[in-house]
Simulated scan of single mutants.
Amino acid sequence: MREFKDWKEFITRVLINSGQFEKPVIEFKGEVEIETYKLTDKNSLTEIRVGYFLQENKLIYLHIFNPTVPGYNKYVEDEYFIIMILTIKIVMETQLWILINRM
C-alpha cells in the first residue's frame, strides 16, 4: 500500500488518477488554500472543494457541491461533521474507559 505525505497529496492523487476530475483551480483566502476540482464531464455541475490550513498543511474541509441540489449539499456537510464528532466522542470514551480499567 502506498503511503502519502499528507491529505493534500492523497486527495489530489485519488481524484486526478480516477480520470474523472480535472486538475484543481487553487485560490487562497487568508491562511487557507482552497482547491476546487471539477468533473471532466462538462455536463456535470458537481465540484469537490477542499480547504487546507496553510501553516500546518492540515485538511479543514472537503465539500461535494452541486448547485442544482442545495438541500443535499447542506445535508452532506452536516453529515460529515456529525460523523466526525461522533467518531471523536467514541474514541475519547474508549480511551477513557481503557485508562480507568487500567487503574
Rank of each mutant, 00 (worst) to 15 (best):
L86S: 12
L45E: 10
L54E: 08
F4L: 02
V69H: 06
I34N: 06
Q20L: 07
E77S: 12
E27L: 11
P70F: 03
I82K: 13
M84R: 15
G71Y: 09
E22N: 10
W7N: 10
H63A: 10
D41F: 03
E56W: 04
T68R: 08
L86N: 14
E3Q: 10
E77G: 08
V32A: 00
L86C: 10
K29F: 12
L15T: 02
T12A: 09
T12W: 05
K42W: 09
K5L: 05
Y52D: 01
L45Y: 07
D41R: 04
E79P: 07
E47D: 09
R49P: 02
Y75N: 08
F53A: 12
S44D: 04
F53W: 10
V76H: 07
T87C: 12
L15H: 01
E93L: 14
P24A: 01
K8E: 03
I83Y: 14
I48W: 01
E3P: 07
N57Q: 04
I82C: 06
D41N: 08
V69F: 10
E22H: 06
L15M: 01
R49I: 03
N66V: 02
L39P: 04
M92L: 11
S18H: 00
T94N: 11
Y52M: 03
I64L: 13
Y37L: 00
I85V: 13
V25K: 13
Y80V: 15
K89H: 10
K89V: 14
V76P: 06
Y37E: 00
E27F: 08
K23G: 11
I60K: 04
V50H: 07
M103H: 08
I82T: 11
S44V: 03
I48E: 01
T40K: 11
